[in-house]
């Protein structure tokens, strides 16, 4: 049996625990220094971190460079937005064959957002995964653009202007998402569970097939595997995670719009994964934090803050294969 007691893994475990402790303590720290808006900022970091982790599952472990991942985030957001709009409007979403009313119940809407993300990922992945390399990047981009323009075309739901939410999703009377600290902890809990699930997944038999296919798909076939189904399944799981993050994003911003699906957003997610460390699962969360903190810190100085981001990203790509997480957690054994 492979033991996980080597030094690299100990260091990674320590890094994860310290990081988690910091995230748990953050609302108190922000309160102590009187900068409450950090809670809101870090809520966004957790939500986009969730989307980035879901992308890492297919990009880092499966070698599938999806350049349309923001589409799944947008779909999740629109599930929340559209159902909320119908509550406000009082009209049903559909009347045939069954009557479906709008709802703001988080226990209904959030799983539905994940489910819709998964369904769209199934359709898009089934076609895209017949290609690899640049073709795959371009096809996923094309699908995302289609959904982007479809969202713009949704006149009922604000078209280009999107939907302003009048209410956040409800999670019963004891959890009030309007309380920003509560919402922060809900997002943190979801992220922790999702990362944990992905961690199990990447080490399972299923995960080994997906990872093997990234390294050498031809060899996998020679061994008797048909990796297409495994890659598609990973793509669907990834779509579900992104859809869920979209639902959270809609609640954080109290707004849903086509911009969530733009190709720039997809690109930003890739940047977060690469910056934080591909194939590390924890790295993309750090990447999301680095990205949003850089944006926050530099946007005051110049609107062209990406002039700084560019060289930073270049530096990370050239000097750290496992991104920022590689520096923090050390060169952990990739076979694990």
């Amino acid at each position: 049996m492979l033991e996980r007691t080597n030094e690299g893994n100990k260091r990674e475990t320590a890094a994860v625990l310290i990081g988690l402790a910091l995230l748990v303590a953050l609302p108190f720290l922000a309160d102590a220094i009187g900068k409450g808006f950090y809670v809101t900022l870090f809520t966004r970091i957790l939500i986009l971190g969730l989307a980035a982790v879901s992308l890492d599952l297919i990009l880092g472990y499966g070698g599938m460079v999806s350049f349309g991942h923001a589409a799944f985030v947008g779909i999740g957001a629109y599930v929340v937005g559209i159902l909320s709009w119908h509550v406000f409007d009082g009209s049903p979403l559909m009347t045939w064959p069954v009557v479906i009313e709008g709802t703001e119940n988080g226990f209904v809407v959030w799983p539905l957002a994940a489910l819709m993300g998964a369904l769209f990922a199934l359709a898009i992945g089934a076609i895209s995964l017949r290609t690899t390399g640049i073709s795959f990047i371009m096809i996923t981009l094309a699908f995302a653009q289609m959904l982007f323009y479809l969202a713009i075309g949704l006149r009922t739901y604000g078209g280009e202007d999107g939907i302003a939410l009048y209410n956040k999703s409800g999670l019963g009377s004891s959890i009030d998402l309007f309380d920003k600290t509560t919402f922060y902890y809900v997002c943190l809990a979801i992220l922790v569970v999702f990362v944990w699930l992905c961690r199990r997944l990447t080490r399972s038999r299923f995960g080994m097939v997906v990872r093997g296919a990234r390294i050498n798909e031809r060899r996998m076939r020679a061994l008797g595997f048909s990796p297409y189904r495994h890659k598609l399944t990973a793509f669907v799981i990834s779509g579900a995670g992104a859809g869920l993050s979209g639902a959270l994003l809609a609640n954080a911003a109290e707004f849903v719009g086509p911009a969530y699906m733009s190709w720039q957003r997809s690109g930003e997610l890739i940047v977060m994964v690469v910056l934080g460390g591909m194939g590390t699962l924890f790295g993309p969360v750090v990447g999301a934090a680095a990205f949003l903190l850089l944006e926050e810190g530099l946007a005051d100085l110049t609107e062209h803050w990406q002039i700084v981001l560019g060289p930073v990203l270049l530096f990370v790509v050239v000097f750290a294969r496992r991104g920022i997480w590689g520096w923090i957690a050390g060169p952990a054994r990739e076979d694990r």
């Binding site: 199990r200 399972s204 038999r205 299923f206 995960g207 080994m208 097939v209 399944t233």
Partner: peptide, 8 residues
């Protein structure tokens, strides 16, 4: 190979 949970 569609086993998602146990550490391979």
């Amino acid at each position: 190979s569609f086993r998602f949970w146990r550490d391979a």
